[in-house]
Simulated assay, not measured.
Amino acid sequence: MSFLSVLPGVVGAAGSRTAMTAGDWSGWAQHSETMLRNAGGGCRSGKLSSAFDSYLAQLRPCLQNQAVRASALGGNAASAASAVDQADGDSSGVLGGQVGNLVSQASVLARQINFG
């Protein structure tokens, strides 16, 4: 039998911290773009400068996506932790009720049978 063991508080906090890195990723993307643009602008060769611009045009969406992905990953992890926590609460109530019903029937199920 396999099961998923999750500490919702820990996972939720990690998800929130991951989502908060989106600003850092956005800053890193802007810095990387600026550095590549400066490198391309500093080239004496028009071909090389054009190659930097072409590379940057292809790379820019990927750089900008990192912040979006970090935010989505963190948000999804926090949402999943919340769902697991809610499911734990729901199942605890259901299972607690079932155990209560079984306990109330225990004396009936365990009574002695008189054959006399």
Rank of each mutant, 00 (worst) to 15 (best):
M1I: 11
M1S: 14
M1E: 15
F3V: 14
L4V: 07
L4W: 15
V6F: 04
L7Y: 13
L7Q: 15
P8T: 00
V10M: 03
V10H: 02
V11C: 03
G12N: 06
A14L: 08
G15R: 04
G15L: 04
A19I: 00
T21P: 01
A22T: 01
G23P: 03
D24T: 14
G27Q: 13
G27P: 00
G27K: 15
A29C: 03
A29E: 03
S32H: 08
E33G: 04
L36S: 06
L36P: 00
L36R: 04
R37A: 12
R37Y: 10
A39R: 08
A39P: 00
A39C: 07
G40S: 02
G42V: 02
C43L: 08
S45F: 02
S45W: 02
G46L: 11
L48W: 09
L48I: 11
L48M: 07
A51Q: 13
A51R: 10
F52Y: 12
D53K: 15
D53S: 15
D53E: 08
Y55A: 10
Y55V: 15
L56R: 10
A57R: 12
L59K: 08
P61F: 04
P61N: 05
P61C: 01
L63V: 00
A67N: 06
V68F: 09
R69I: 03
R69E: 15
R69L: 10
A70S: 08
A70W: 03
S71V: 09
G74Q: 00
G75V: 00
N76A: 14
N76G: 03
A77F: 14
A78S: 03
S79H: 09
A80D: 06
A80H: 09
A81H: 01
S82V: 09
V84G: 01
V84F: 07
A87W: 06
D88V: 11
G89W: 06
D90V: 08
G93M: 03
G93R: 11
G93T: 00
V94S: 05
G97I: 01
V99W: 02
G100T: 04
N101C: 08
L102V: 12
L102D: 09
V103S: 11
V103R: 11
Q105C: 08
A106T: 05
L109T: 09
L109I: 09
A110V: 04
N114R: 09
